[in-house]
């Protein structure tokens, strides 16, 4: 299927998934998984970094409109888009040369590292922006840690679920 159609569908799908399902999750008062960033994680590797950043910003802004949160998610996603090449290089190492990498061909460990770095960055920026004050640092860190663990687990599950079947 055409790449841009796949990505448009993912965009809408992950926003709705976040709004209808995951925003209603509540474990232990703190944990709220944010899985919609899979859209950014799975953008084509060949895409230029400016395109990635613009799409990330748009994704975050869309969620912000629903959450009444101004630019919290927009900022977090933008930072995520900016650091994506760095995270890819760190996680997939030498294989990261833009064209040849396949997310699923590299085994479990690089994928886990990639997802963890990205979720860590996103959650930290998002919770900091949401609190918008130094008074909440312990809360920002606990939120990042607990929600982060759940987000990482769910994101890896969903990524394997989306894996294209071999023909």
């Amino acid at each position: 299927m055409n790449k841009s159609i796949t990505n448009s569908i993912r965009f809408v799908f992950f926003i709705l998934l976040q709004l209808y399902l995951l925003d209603n999750f509540l474990f232990l008062d703190y944990i709220n998984p944010y899985v919609y960033i899979i859209f950014i994680l799975l953008l084509p590797i060949s895409m230029s970094s400016i395109q990635v950043m613009l799409l990330s910003f748009l994704l975050g802004l869309t969620l912000d409109v629903f959450h009444n949160s101004g630019g919290v998610h927009a900022a977090a996603c933008l930072v995520l888009g900016y650091f994506r090449p760095l995270a890819l290089r760190n996680a997939f190492g030498v294989n990261f040369d833009f064209q040849t990498l396949k997310f699923y061909g590299e085994g479990f460990k690089p994928l886990l590292v990639y997802v963890s770095i990205m979720v860590g960055i996103h959650h930290l920026v998002m919770f900091s922006m949401e609190a918008f004050s130094l008074a909440y640092i312990p809360r920002i860190l606990t939120n990042t840690l607990y929600s982060g663990i759940f987000s990482i687990a769910l994101i890896i599950l969903v990524i394997y679920f989306l894996k294209p079947s071999k023909k």
Binding site: I50, M53, L54, F57, G60, L61, D64, N68, S69, G70, G71, V72, A74, A75, L78, V79, Y82, M129, F132
Partner: peptide, 18 residues
């Protein structure tokens, strides 16, 4: 440049929302 432009925009929106 694109990054910082969008980042400043996002911060402005956040302040505005608060």
């Amino acid at each position: 440049l694109v990054f910082w432009a969008l980042f400043v925009l996002a911060i402005a929106l956040t302040i505005n929302a608060n």
